Simulated assay, not measured.
Amino acid sequence: MRYRVRHLTEYLYVAPVTLCYNMTHLLPRDTPKQRCLSRNIKVSPTPIYHSAGEDYFGNETYYFSIQEAHKKLAIEVESIFDIDEQDLPNQLSLQVPTCGELRQMLAYADTPELRMVKEYLLDSTHIHRSAKLAAYAADTFADEVSVLQAALDFTHKIFQEFTFDATATSISTPAEQVLEERRGVCQDFAHFAISCIRSVGLPARYISGYLETLPPPGQEKLVGADASHAWFAIFVPELGWVEFDPTNDLMPNGQHIITAWGRDYADVSPLQGVIFDGGDSQKLNVSVDVQRL
């Protein structure tokens, strides 16, 4: 399937910003099932300096600085890519290790791949392991259960027990609070799943990107109605990183478009940087369109 994604980000300031330095994670990366055919980024006002690059995790980055006064910053990214649907892993037909076997492999980590994966066992900016989170996930990720089956069951558990609520949390809401309130958005559910999985000694990483949304039957799709999305992946030997979407209770295949991945949201935030002046408040507008071609 071929898609065009248009992502528009606008910051409106109450007073002029005199200088800014920024880095974006808005240029989608290539993966074994996703090929970016073209990508274009436009920044207004025009940057005095800009540079494309790649971060530690292999994500596409774009640095820019603006040295003219401005009360509005606009960043528009348009990308076109092909996404292949693939046969999803089947835990019944594959020799997938159990959770106990994977924990044992990681304890010895006798290959470069396993040693690199251990990075995703640790705490990070938004991920903090705890006994409470481990207790919530312990039965699902029991030693005798296959890693794939456990991840599928845990994805379904979050979907069944948690409620999508865009007003309940913020980016800094800790996983234990999400557990107590059982509410949040895709970002919270991804962070929560990763926090629980790492708390039981298994590696998980955060994935950001887009999800194609379709209107109800008989209705036209609204411009700008799509949004950024977040999900997680767990490492399975021989298969690599296998993705799961607890917000929608499924394994991504075909309609999920990956922008970047890392330990958590802090590694892949769409825009981060420093501004000088700009007043004491700002307004953010984001519009996303995912279109099948």
Rank of each mutant, 00 (worst) to 15 (best):
143 D>I: 01
145 V>W: 09
146 S>H: 09
148 L>E: 05
149 Q>H: 11
150 A>Q: 05
150 A>D: 02
151 A>N: 08
153 D>M: 05
155 T>F: 01
155 T>V: 05
156 H>A: 15
158 I>N: 02
159 F>M: 01
161 E>N: 06
161 E>H: 08
162 F>M: 03
162 F>R: 01
163 T>L: 14
164 F>K: 12
165 D>E: 07
166 A>R: 14
167 T>H: 11
167 T>A: 12
167 T>W: 00
168 A>E: 15
168 A>H: 12
168 A>W: 12
169 T>M: 01
170 S>C: 00
171 I>G: 14
175 A>C: 05
176 E>I: 03
177 Q>I: 12
178 V>E: 06
178 V>A: 13
181 E>P: 00
181 E>L: 14
183 R>H: 05
184 G>M: 01
184 G>W: 00
185 V>N: 07
185 V>G: 08
187 Q>P: 07
188 D>E: 07
189 F>A: 06
191 H>A: 05
194 I>Y: 11
194 I>N: 12
195 S>Y: 08
196 C>M: 12
197 I>V: 14
198 R>N: 06
198 R>P: 07
198 R>K: 10
199 S>C: 13
201 G>D: 10
201 G>F: 12
201 G>E: 07
206 Y>N: 11
206 Y>K: 10
208 S>W: 07
209 G>L: 02
213 T>K: 15
213 T>G: 13
213 T>A: 14
213 T>E: 13
214 L>D: 14
217 P>I: 03
218 G>W: 09
220 E>S: 15
222 L>E: 15
223 V>Y: 14
224 G>V: 11
224 G>N: 09
226 D>T: 07
227 A>E: 08
227 A>R: 10
228 S>V: 12
230 A>E: 00
230 A>H: 07
230 A>V: 12
231 W>C: 07
